[in-house]
């Protein structure tokens, strides 16, 4: 194949420049700045800063609140990822059975995906509201005195449910197209080979969905860790108090509410490293992608 080439080096550089500038201005510069300020202790009133070395980091390690939030983030991420994947898979399997070209169904579910996280959070508030929320009423029937924003577990439940609810459609779409790409005859061969539809699912369908599932796993972990900020912010109504929150929200609180820029920067650097690890993991996965053809 003939490869198109540039005769001078300047044209490609000029073409790349806007993109590189955007990356530099919106990513490398703030990231570098965060790394730098994580080594300083900022004066809360903005009068200069003192170099403190790794103190911001070591402080975090001994900060019990930070550790508690980190632990909550882990549990939260696991719950959101598991339930949004499991429920979406269940729905996709049912939908795949009913309609092979599930276009209307797909579009309907896709709408939820178009809802912005704060709106999802706001709808969560409506459902879980102390006085008028239908879900609160439902919990009441079962004797659960549900208190959003007051009780730690209750708030955490709402956060998980709102985040899961928002993520199900996108997972559903991927699972459904994954299911529909399994050749019909493979499913039929399995029907002849195996009487039990449950064991057929785990032995044939699920392994064939593995590439989709791995991909979604990474996407969902990233989502639960970072993209649920809007949901959490809305549910907490800016009054974190004693409520659960994730690490990303803590960065925001410490930096912008607590004016502890040094500590907040150290936290974001830790998160950056986490993203980096996830990204490397994902690329590794894509390289070794399990593909059957």
């Amino acid at each position: 194949m003939k490869r198109a080439g540039f005769t001078t080096i300047w044209l490609p550089v000029a073409l790349l420049l806007p993109q590189l500038m955007i990356i530099a201005i919106f990513f490398y510069w703030p990231a570098g700045w965060a790394v730098q300020s994580s080594f300083y202790l900022q004066d809360p009133f903005g009068f200069g800063s003192t170099f403190v070395g790794l103190e911001n980091y070591t402080d975090l390690g001994s900060n019990s609140e930070y550790l508690r939030i980190a632990w909550f983030t882990v549990i939260y991420t696991c719950l959101v990822t598991f339930f949004s994947l499991a429920i979406a898979l269940l729905l996709a399997v049912k939908a795949d059975k009913v309609i092979r070209s599930a276009r209307t169904y797909r579009t309907l579910l896709m709408w939820v995906y178009a809802i912005a996280p704060p709106v999802a959070g706001f709808m969560g508030i409506m459902f879980f509201d102390q006085r008028t929320g239908p879900i609160t009423d439902a919990f009441q029937v079962f004797g659960w005195d549900y208190k959003l924003g007051v009780n730690y577990t209750d708030t955490a439940t709402a956060m998980v449910i709102a985040a899961v609810w928002k993520q199900i459609p996108v997972n559903f779409i991927f699972f459904l197209s994954g299911l529909q790409s399994i050749p019909r005859s493979v499913n039929e061969a399995a029907i002849i080979d195996n009487r039990s539809s449950t064991s057929r699912f785990w032995q044939v369908t699920f392994p064939l969905l593995a590439p989709t599932t791995f991909f979604l796993l990474i996407i969902n972990i990233t989502y639960a860790l970072f993209d649920t900020f809007g949901i959490i912010d809305t549910l907490l109504k800016g009054e974190p108090g004693n409520n659960p929150m994730t690490l990303v929200y803590k960065v925001y609180l410490d930096g912008f509410r607590g004016n502890d820029l040094g500590g907040s920067s150290a936290q974001s650097v830790i998160l950056m490293v986490l993203v980096l690890i996830l990204t490397v993991f994902q690329f590794r996965l894509i390289e070794r992608r399990i593909h059957y053809t």
């Binding site: 493979v186 039929e188 061969a189 029907i191 195996n194 009487r195 593995a210 059957y292």
Partner: peptide, 19 residues
Amino acid sequence: DPADRDIAMVFQNYALYPH
């Protein structure tokens, strides 16, 4: 049930389990 009909079927595109 197909699994209980004591049959075996060979499909046009082989329908092997890829994994």
